Computed example of a mutant assay.
Amino acid sequence: PLSLIVALAIVATLFVYFVSNAVLKSRRRPVVSGAEQLLGSTGIMLNDMQSDGVISEGWARVRSEQWRAQSMVTLAKGQRVRVVSRTGLILAVVPINEVEPGELI
């Protein structure tokens, strides 16, 4: 019957419309997990870094998680850091000045 074909076509069209609309909305959302989310994040050093030559290593809390952190400069416990890259489970961090340019006090 023609009415059944029309009804199925309308249902299928509505289904495709709503699914494609949901997919497009999800693509516009910011990244909330993974390596991309960590880059640029700030954290705090949990201990004094220990240096073994050029690279210093220690532990930092970033996004409520503890990470092994490496830096070209020795950082102290409680110092604020910013993540610049990630290799495996090790974050490369740099120190943050107490007040960043453009940051509100």
Rank of each mutant, 00 (worst) to 15 (best):
V54M: 09
V81M: 02
I105S: 09
K25M: 06
V31T: 12
V6D: 11
I5N: 14
T87P: 02
W59A: 13
V23C: 07
L46W: 01
A69C: 09
M72I: 15
G88N: 09
R80I: 02
Q70S: 06
L39G: 01
S64W: 01
R29G: 00
A76P: 02
A12W: 11
K77M: 07
A9G: 14
A60I: 03
Q66K: 12
L38C: 04
R63A: 07
Q37D: 07
F18Y: 11
R61Q: 10
L39S: 02
A9M: 07
Y17W: 10
V83S: 02
A69P: 06
I44D: 00
A76K: 14
Q50I: 13
Y17H: 10
V93L: 06
L39A: 02
V16W: 08
P1M: 14
S85N: 12
E57R: 13
S71M: 07
P101W: 09
W59L: 14
R28W: 00
L2P: 03
S3C: 11
Q50Y: 07
G58T: 01
R63T: 01
V62Q: 00
M72E: 10
L75Y: 06
E57K: 09
Q37F: 07
L39C: 03
V6Q: 14
D52A: 15
V83A: 02
D52M: 14
V31F: 01
T74L: 12
L39T: 05
L91F: 01
I5K: 14
L8M: 04
G43C: 08
S51V: 15
D48R: 06
S85K: 04
R82H: 00
A7F: 07
M45G: 10
L39M: 08
I90S: 08
A92E: 15
M49I: 13
A22L: 10
G88A: 07
M49D: 05
L8A: 11
P30W: 00
A7V: 03
A22S: 12
S85C: 07
I10K: 12
G102V: 02
I10T: 13
V23Y: 14
V62P: 03
M49A: 08
E100I: 06
V6N: 14
S3Y: 04
V81R: 00
L2H: 09
G43H: 04
A76M: 12
D48H: 12
V93P: 06
R27L: 11
K77S: 08
V62G: 01
W59P: 04
V81F: 03
V16N: 08
L104A: 13
E57Y: 07
L104S: 14
A9W: 00
A76I: 10
N97V: 14
F15T: 13
L38P: 03
V62K: 00
V93I: 07
R63M: 11
A12G: 10
P30G: 01
A22R: 13
T74N: 10
I90W: 02
F15G: 08
G34S: 03
V11I: 13
S71W: 04
V16Q: 04
P95N: 03
T87G: 10
G78A: 02
I105D: 09
E57H: 11
V23Q: 09
W59D: 13
K25L: 12
